[in-house]
Write a protein that binds this DNA or RNA. Sequence first.
DNA 1: GGGTACTGATACTCGCGCGGCATCACCGAC
DNA 2: GTCGGTGATGCCGCGCGAGTATCAGTACCC
Lengths: 306, 306
Amino acid sequence: MPREYQYPFELRHLVYFREVARHLHFRKAAETLAIAQPALSRAVAQLETALGANLLDRTRRGVAITPAGRQLLETLEPLLRGLAEIPADLQALAAGETGHVRVAFTGLAMATVLPGILGEFHRRHPRIRLELSESPTSAQLAALQAGDIACGFFHPDAPTPALRTHVLLRERNGVLLPAAHPLAARPSLRLRELAATPFVLFPRSHNPGFYDRILAAFAAAGVTPRIAEEIWPRANGVGLVRAGLGVTFMTPSEAQHLPPEVAFRALQGPAPESRLVLGWSAETEPAPALAAFLAVATATHPPRKP
Amino acid sequence: MPREYQYPFELRHLVYFREVARHLHFRKAAETLAIAQPALSRAVAQLETALGANLLDRTRRGVAITPAGRQLLETLEPLLRGLAEIPADLQALAAGETGHVRVAFTGLAMATVLPGILGEFHRRHPRIRLELSESPTSAQLAALQAGDIACGFFHPDAPTPALRTHVLLRERNGVLLPAAHPLAARPSLRLRELAATPFVLFPRSHNPGFYDRILAAFAAAGVTPRIAEEIWPRANGVGLVRAGLGVTFMTPSEAQHLPPEVAFRALQGPAPESRLVLGWSAETEPAPALAAFLAVATATHPPRKP
DNA sequence: GGGTACTGATACTCGCGCGGCATCACCGAC
DNA sequence: GTCGGTGATGCCGCGCGAGTATCAGTACCC
């Protein structure tokens, strides 16, 4: 009888029994198992003692399974198969063939680089599952720190120690305003011309650095903007602009496919810049699945200067 | 590294690893497992070597799970739980608390004793599953011999060696005939009065002995019956009688709740007798679940003389 | 900064139990 | 009867798991 932990048997006993049940023949089973027949006899006997049940009927000529043995065999089969798959599964995980990667992103990422990356990644690594969630920059930074996500597409506005980053793109923000707005008649605008117009912005807590940089740009232009509404994700700002609640910032990439009631205009002179960055923890070596994702993302989008 | 069979680890290693992963602490896990800490350290290290993967990050202060470790843990949990349940499941099977019993029956059984037996059995043994199938006598005898069913309710007409039986009831057959039939006006009939009437019977192959006994009864009454149709299960004969295709035999128990277009009449004088018997293999001791079923069946229906 | 307490890893020994070989007991075929 | 084949049993060696003692590194304390 083996030691305990709560299991009155060892893997050995179960495998041995299964083999005997398959062959219904101790010697043949022993040969398959590459052990001698007496050892097999004893192991099966031990299992029967441990379980307090006759698993096999030993007649002088041949062996038959009892109902208890059959039930054991049926419950055993999937369990042993599951255990047998463990090494291969872990190898696949280590090789980056399987696994899952939690990825967070912002609206700008989904409007630009993300679809291409996702398509390419799925093509190259079909067995790695991605868990995607839209999330503001500040929440992504916290989630990266806590290990809740493996990597994120976000807009940093300060150095991010403890993170490794890859700059994917930089875009100057323009202005989205109602098509009926007087300034919409102009091909491009300057910040200071927007002094009287209410603004729709994202909540400051979602990216304080970028938020403050926007305000600083206004201040440099000699303007104090009026924040009429806050909304997130930024793409929803289109609805507010369309409803005439104000104007908002947006990058050209995000300004594709807009309804006719709104107009996008570039900014001349100082303008807030959005920087899309892929970031992941620098503290631990990326798991293979994450490494595979990072490789695809960085390969399809060569780095820009920070 | 333990011996092989294809599993590069032993149950021990898995349980030990799970315990460490739970506590994230070698000493506490060792205490729970009632072994010394060094043994635990070595076992986990062996598992990691065997799987070729780092399962735990050992920092000097505390232990953390790696992605590989987490995956192993997730696949392990249900497998170990399944293995832990094996002893209790086998005990339950041995005690007759679980298991399944394949039971065959005929229409007469379902019309009489079976519903009561099933209700009582389910009340007493809720965890034993019954697999019920309506099947003619001859098929039940073959299935009992082959071990395809554990017991059957049928109508033997010859000694059944290799079976143990319990006689549940005996009933004289009466005649079911269309309500519009001239003989339906009489309160009871004699066999010979049915000479001119076509009969609906079950296929002879389904119970040759009983079939022949019916013909013998006719012959004793000086009549050669005309078999118009054969049908099974017998209860479906009601439809044929109702359609005016002929008359058929039936026991009073089966003749409950008949549509008004048919009439049941008892037979005076010689009449075929149906004997309902519960039978099971005499060759092997009944499995606990079957024994439980037989106990209920025989207890609720004390034996009749054969 | 050195002591202390804690972590997990290592060195060594001990003894249980697995597995091997040889053999037995029993059955069926002929 | 003999012979071939089944699974069980006796016995022995030794591998390996577990225990004790100890080491090595870190965090925290004053």
